[in-house]
Nucleic acid binder design. Structure first.
Length: 290
RNA sequence: GGCCCGGUAGCUCAGUUGGUAGAGCAACGGACUGAAAAUCCGUGUGUCGCCGGUUCAAUCCCGGCCUGGGCCA
């Protein structure tokens, strides 16, 4: 059985997962897109090694920030670990707020091999022009993707040119069952309280030295790394570059985290059969009764 | 005390030569298959400071009051 602990950021998922793993003799598998990076520490609010209380955990801090990570790689890495744990009959606690990663790990998402393609000519075009081209090669995707959503339009073109098939040919999995036995849990929260906690957490990150962390990462790796699109780092980098003030950076980190939490709520609400719980004990009680 | 400027959405502010009002941000709702902490879409939530007057009709004009700021005493 896979126990998924997900839901919005800052609701105490980590401690619930650790507690649950302890109760069940399980192991934790990360499902947070930014906890995979070795060098991101303060800004990601990642649990430290000692927080795990000896519980075995996987897919944390195993990717270098200079690498371009992808959901396809996550899926492959996560499935390997999941299948190994299932084979050894060890309960799996899949922990993280990256909904699409959970979706890719547990559902029948398929990522085909891709041959590298050069899209630089397309990147010169404006949104409307790009969308027109997409309409010519994949009208169904053009219907589904808003012209302003440049990233998705480009991605649909990339699929067409690198996989030789259309994005719209990939089956949409809505209301389908996961390929593994899984239950989905989120920690109950009050939204106003959650927003307040986010604000406090960001101030705590600043006290813990987020600015210095961002500075040293920037000095060592430059500002182009995919990993630096993480909330907390992207705003600090703008501040370090002198584009915004420190106060602006802080309030943007707070606002972006709030918006992110809201998107997470929307995602899990519609994508997973969520059960909202208060503590790990609720899950354990639930297992005993059913 | 006198003069001047302001009071409109949660915030910052537009605006209506009189016909009950709109931007940005915030908030809320949503989409989601290789950057997902990403990217994108949708929704205005309002005693237009208060009380009177003029008017068919006042957030707008007039008077008074309350209130914030500035200048002069």
């Amino acid at each position: 059985m896979i126990y998924v602990i997900t839901g919005p950021t800052n609701t105490g998922k980590d401690s619930v997962a650790i507690e649950l793993a302890k109760c069940l003799g399980g192991e934790i598998v990360n499902a947070d897109a930014f906890h995979v990076y070795k060098q991101l520490k303060i800004g990601t609010n990642k649990p430290r090694d000692e927080d795990f209380l000896g519980i075995k955990h996987h897919l944390f801090e195993y990717v270098d920030v200079s690498e371009d990570y992808s959901i396809a790689r996550y899926q492959s890495d996560a499935r390997q670990i999941i299948e190994d744990l299932i084979a050894r009959n060890i309960p799996i606690i899949l922990l993280g707020g990256s909904g699409l990663y959970i979706k890719a790990a547990l559902y029948d998402y398929r990522f085909k091999d891709e041959t590298p393609v050069d899209l630089s000519e397309y990147e010169k075009l404006n949104n409307a022009e790009l969308h027109t081209i997409l309409r010519k090669v994949d009208a169904a995707s053009a219907d589904r993707i808003h012209p302003h959503n440049r990233r998705r339009v480009l991605r649909a073109l990339q699929i067409y040119f690198s996989q030789g098939n259309k994005k719209s040919d990939i089956p949409v999995l809505k209301d389908e069952a996961p390929i593994y036995e899984a239950q989905f849990f989120g920690v109950e929260f009050d939204r106003a309280d959650l927003y307040l906690r986010i604000e406090k957490r960001v101030h705590r990150m600043m006290e813990e030295g987020l600015e210095d962390e961002a500075k040293s990462l920037l000095a060592r790796y430059g500002d182009k790394q995919q990993a630096f699109s993480a909330i907390g780092y992207k705003e600090m980098i703008e501040y370090i570059h002198g584009l915004i003030s420190k106060e602006e950076a802080i309030s943007q980190i707070i606002a972006n985290t709030r918006h992110y939490a809201k998107r997470q709520i929307t995602f899990v609400r519609h994508q997973f059969p969520m059960q909202w719980i208060k503590s790990a004990a609720d899950i354990v009680a639930n297992i005993k009764h059913g």
